[in-house]
């Protein structure tokens, strides 16, 4: 039992944490009726993915031995590091996620702009109320 726990949960704790947050975000993005809450959910979702992606770079990690806190060092090369054979964190995921954060920020900006326009048009940001307004419009069209 403990072994299983160690192998599948503790050693891969970054996966578990990321997955939990991702599911929270996904739930909010899909299920919430308020457009802003949806957007918050989406942001949580994206950020969780960044967290997980960055954790991939931590190649020096050996949880069972040191209980986690001693992983690879930042990928900065100086003489002592080379002599003592430090393990470096893989810099690539961090760099990729910088781009990812930019994309995420842009998405949020676009989405917020749309929410503002929706609020101007419908006077609400609750999805069911918006749908009801649209339904009324349709009924009005059908009746004449």
């Amino acid at each position: 039992m403990m072994e299983w726990l160690a192998q599948h949960v503790l050693e891969k704790y970054n996966f578990w944490i990321a997955m939990t947050i991702i599911l929270i975000g996904l739930y909010a993005a899909m299920a919430k009726g308020n457009l802003l809450k949806k957007l918050i959910g989406l942001s949580i979702f994206q950020t969780a993915m960044f967290l997980w992606f960055i954790s991939l770079g931590d190649v020096g990690r050996d949880v069972m031995v040191t209980w986690g806190l001693k992983g690879g060092t930042p990928p900065i090369i100086w003489e002592k590091a080379v002599e003592e054979g430090y393990t470096y964190v893989n810099p690539l995921p961090n760099v990729l996620m910088l781009t990812g954060i930019v994309v995420s920020a842009a998405t949020t900006a676009v989405a917020l702009a749309i929410v503002i326009r929706i609020y101007q048009k419908y006077g609400t940001i609750e999805e069911d109320e918006i749908l009801e307004r649209e339904l009324q419009e349709e009924v009005r069209y059908a009746s004449g």
């Binding site: 996904l26 993005a29 899909m30 457009l35 949806k38 957007l39 989406l42 979702f45 994206q46 998405t107 676009v110 989405a111 749309i114 929410v115 326009r117 929706i118 048009k121 999805e127 918006i130 649209e134």
Partner: peptide, 14 residues
């Protein structure tokens, strides 16, 4: 189109 676009933002980003 705004609501349609907003749904697209959410789904597309996911």
């Amino acid at each position: 189109a705004l609501r349609a676009s907003y749904n697209y933002v959410i789904m597309g980003s996911i």
